[in-house]
Design a protein around this nucleic acid. Structure first.
Lengths: 364, 364
DNA sequence: CCTGCATCTGACAACGTTGTCCAGGCTCTA
DNA sequence: TAGAGCCTGGACAACGTTGTCAGATGCAGG
């Protein structure tokens, strides 16, 4: 389609001289060749600012003028360029979300909750996955800052976030979720990983278990470390000394988790119960246990879809991913409001959901 | 922190007169008060363009000059404003993704795949959920266009996308996924919903079933309609007349699905097998079947985590969500390259995964 | 008919960056 | 040593929008 103004339309314009319009219309090599307010103004025969006023619903435009402008907008398929607007206004009405893996079912509801809050505040969500790589987290977070997002919700992969200091000082609202920020003072929203794990393990102990295994993620990940700490605390509370061979920490690939589980289930004194440190681990361990001849008790951190339909149902320590996201996003916008000043650390409670697997008695 | 240049630093500057610098430095009310290239240039005692050159790694700057500029960047915590850059350059290196629900496990891998491709092309991903609401889809898609995303991946909620015509003409690359575009000619990447459903139902028929139920989503959703068509085709191929009471289409809330399933399982001639139209329906139906006294066969559209661990394992028609996302995103970037011109409709095959529930014989 | 006021409109600068173009200083050669 | 040519650096305009301010218009009242 030819976006240039037909000659009969041009005649309607009043003040702007022919040459200027011609120059502006000349085909330029820029991508898109989109109509701008200038084009709309020329076509409607009004000034630039009048178009701006119409587009933004500002008062002080006669109905007749407004109609002409609307008509031109329609005819040209004009859409305001928010990039330019942002440059002028300072705020982008968008927030960034750096998470670990968009495909992880735990982060789905979390992202969704963040999005809902953003939407309620008229903001868009830009997000990316760090894949648990601190460099990638930093790269992403800074790229988002370069886009001048108003705020940043970060699920940290690394443990040093001083690189965000200039951004925060420059006014980028920042909230960390799921794991704490490293070496900077910032808002943090967490689950009670320590307490949840301790409760889960204590639950197993209450059902008679003493040899209890723990399979978790790499200990440099805060949640993994906290859950391990909860495990240790529960065992210590019960006066049970923990054998090193009962604990396995590392990447949560199915292969490693499988061999870790198989190992602690073999030997002369196998564990009679396993506490799993996150949903990925739980899934793999369920598979391993399904192949075992004897029954092994299981409590997992994080809930699973269908967990109630397995035989036995899977007892879990559930965290509320949506609440984490919602809380974080709400704090973010309160920072932007100015309602919130002092960084805080918020811990949301977890919930033990008993379904059978955690109530199995020890096999021996 | 005070970002203004200390007096002793100002003296280093050469040409720019005092007054201009003073004016630029004066505290302005704009949000953030971030240092700009101008500030860096002043502090390093060089020209604006030299800073630009350093920031963008362009040639023609002596190492000594570069060092001074880098130092100033460091000291001020400068970060390039990509909004301004975009305004100048035309492309934003970002793409938009409009999906139905970020929290749906089907869309997680899809989003992730789109993100991976975007990342490989140096682009960021902006996304939002339409919640199956056509108006919201349009609002979101147009908001993304206003941000001048280079391209748009849309999982349609509505069935009329003519509103995107001006955008596409203006150069916004567009690909529809999972469901076709309505009333415009555009790239579309789909699963073979019809064929998959037909295969799944044929599988049940091959195992001796004749009274087979179908529970699916609202028929205005393309995938739901196609899957229903596949069901009908398989039944017709086998010469089985379909009773109206065997089919239920509507919102996939647990309540409605539950009552639909219970209804077709009751009465004098209950169905002996059910084909479910998507993962949400499947999950609910599994729960209903678990409460039944007799065994009912089940084949579901979409795979489920843990489906193999249930008793019996759930036979499904699996689609490759990641492949959908990847294919769509790759086509998007090929549109942007100019490698791709003619819109095409691509159908990816589905895969029947037998796990037990689909191989159960009829109960009667 | 002029003044004063209210209403509507448009010219212009600015936002922070990049592309163009030119100036000044250097090296190299005749 | 002068001139040509290269290299480095900087002034300036432009991208598309919005805020400021002043000009134009219309109308009522003196």
């Amino acid at each position: 389609m030819d976006l240039r103004i037909p000659v009969d339309e041009q005649d309607r314009t009043r003040i702007v001289p022919e040459t200027i319009r011609r120059a502006d219309r000349s085909p330029h090599n820029r991508y898109g060749n989109r109509p701008t307010m200038k084009d709309v103004a020329a076509r409607a025969g009004v000034g630039l600012k009048t178009v701006s006023r119409v587009v933004n619903g500002e008062p002080g435009v006669t109905p007749e003028t407004e109609r002409r402008v609307q008509e031109a907008i329609e005819a040209l398929g004009f859409r305001r360029n928010d990039s330019a607007r942002v440059l002028r206004k300072g705020r982008t009405a968008s927030i960034g979300l750096v998470l670990e893996d968009l495909a992880d079912p735990f982060y789905g509801p979390l992202s969704r909750a963040v999005e809902e809050v953003a939407r309620a505040h008229g903001a868009l969500l830009i997000n990316g996955s760090s894949a648990e790589d601190p460099d990638r987290e930093q790269e992403l977070a800074l790229a988002l800052c370069a886009r001048r997002v108003d705020g940043l919700v970060v699920i940290p992969a690394g443990d040093d976030h001083r690189y965000l200091e200039p951004e925060i000082r420059a006014g980028v609202a920042t909230v960390f979720v799921d794991r704490p920020a490293g070496r900077i003072d910032a808002d943090v929203v967490l689950s009670d990983n320590y307490g949840g794990a301790r409760d889960g393990v204590a639950h197993l102990i209450a059902h008679g278990h003493r040899r209890i295994g723990f399979i978790g993620d790499m200990p440099r990940i805060h949640t993994a470390a906290e859950r391990l700490r909860g495990y240790r605390a529960a065992m210590e509370d019960a006066g049970i000394p923990v054998a090193d061979s009962w604990m396995s920490l590392g990447v949560t690939t199915p292969e490693r988790v499988r061999s870790a589980a198989e190992e602690m289930l073999s030997g002369p004194e196998p564990v009679t119960a396993i506490f799993t440190g996150n949903n990925r681990v739980t899934v793999t361990v369920i598979r391993v246990l399904a192949e075992q001849s004897r029954q092994v008790a299981l409590v997992g951190f994080d809930d699973l879809e269908l967990a109630d339909l397995l035989q036995p149902g899977v007892t879990v320590v559930a965290q509320d991913a949506a609440a984490l996201g919602r809380t974080a996003a709400e704090r973010l916008f309160r920072q932007l409001d100015g309602t919130l000043v002092t960084p805080e650390r918020i811990e949301l409670p977890t919930r033990l959901i008993t379904r059978g697997s955690g109530e199995l008695p020890p096999a021996d």
